[in-house]
Simulated scan of single mutants.
Amino acid sequence: MNPPHAVTVQQTGQFQHPFCGCCDNCGLCLMTVVAPCYIFGKTAEAVGEDCLMWGVAYIFLRCIAGAIIRGKVRESRGIQGDGVEDVCKHWFCPLCALIQDHLEVFENVLRGRLNVLFFGNSSSSTAFGAAMMDSFE
């Protein structure tokens, strides 16, 4: 049995967040506009890659680097798609692609970490932590 703070990943075959839902999380949207390479690097790190290397790669090779990491995000979550689609999304709407990728790998991870950090491991505190996180969205 998983501990109460364990993070589970749903593999639904599609992203949990809409592609054009960039402004659903205003803080992340602003941070992505100001420092897209940082957001990209943290997303790459979440799928097992080097944050600094991929953050720098994003500056010079946005579409290629974006497609590679988006492919890893899709693979890790069981999401359908292909490399051509990933390149197109990072070419035509890079901020939406960055935010969708970032939310896909970090939303559940962040929720789980904050629950453990602030509320301990009990199931009642985990429910409280989830309610607190919902208030920030």
Rank of each mutant, 00 (worst) to 15 (best):
T126V: 13
G129W: 04
V73F: 05
L117S: 13
M1L: 08
Q10L: 13
G78T: 12
A65I: 05
V116Q: 15
A6V: 07
G112N: 00
F119G: 05
D24N: 13
V33H: 14
I69P: 01
M1P: 07
S76N: 09
L61A: 13
M31Y: 13
V33Q: 13
A35Q: 13
A67M: 03
G21T: 03
Y58N: 00
L28I: 15
E85W: 09
S122D: 13
G83C: 11
V105K: 05
G83N: 07
L61D: 06
Q10S: 12
C96Y: 01
V84Q: 05
C88M: 14
Q16Y: 03
T12A: 12
Q14I: 00
E45N: 13
P36R: 07
A67K: 01
K42D: 08
G48E: 14
L114S: 01
F136K: 05
F60C: 10
L30C: 15
A6T: 07
G55S: 04
G41P: 04
G13H: 11
T126K: 09
F40W: 04
D50F: 05
C63Y: 07
M31G: 15
M53F: 12
V105S: 05
V84F: 10
Q14W: 01
M132I: 13
R62G: 11
F128V: 04
T8E: 13
F92P: 01
K89D: 07
L117K: 14
M53K: 15
W54Q: 04
I79L: 02
M132Y: 10
K42T: 15
A130C: 08
S123H: 12
E75P: 01
